[in-house]
């Protein structure tokens, strides 16, 4: 890549993909995967999301490993970003809770309030 124009084209393309432009019901699952997240057990959580989504054959769901979002005391945290712009942060997850989130939130679109960061935080 040699010019700013080329970079701009790539940016627009990547932005579209990352923010799910034009996708009707897109979901992006961001699993906190810094050292803090991994130490708290983000790996089984990530694996659960990947396996369940695969087993359910869901389209337009992307699972990504991201860095630390700062709430290290509440890891493993997962932020669910949807194509309508809504963002939900779940915290202190386990593999079982992760599959619950897939079934309820991702498949049926129902938030599970009891795992929300805003509910659990003291």
């Amino acid at each position: 890549m040699k010019t700013l124009e080329e970079l701009k084209i790539l940016r627009e393309k990547s932005h579209k993909k990352m923010y799910m432009d034009g996708v009707t019901r897109g979901v992006r699952v961001q699993v906190g995967y810094g050292t803090c997240g991994i130490a708290a057990g983000a790996t089984p959580v990530y694996d659960t999301f990947v396996n369940e989504i695969k087993a359910l054959n869901l389209e337009n769901v992307e699972i990504v490993k991201v860095g630390c979002m700062g709430e290290c005391a509440f890891e493993p945290t997962v932020e669910i970003v949807e194509s309508d712009g809504s963002k939900t942060i779940y915290c202190l997850l386990t593999d079982r809770r992760a599959s619950e989130i897939v079934e309820e939130h991702i498949v049926k679109g129902i938030r599970i309030d009891k795992y929300l960061l805003s509910k659990i935080k003291r």
């Binding site: 700013l4 970079l7 701009k8 993909k17 961001q30 810094g34 991201v66 979002m69």
Partner: peptide, 26 residues
């Protein structure tokens, strides 16, 4: 920390989606 916990650090395209490498180009 603008991108921490938002982008996939292993995918340069996500960094670029958030205006990455634009400053360098400029």
């Amino acid at each position: 920390l603008r991108n921490c916990g938002v982008i996939n650090p292993l995918d340069v395209n996500e960094y670029i989606a958030r205006h990455g490498y634009e400053a360098l180009g400029k």
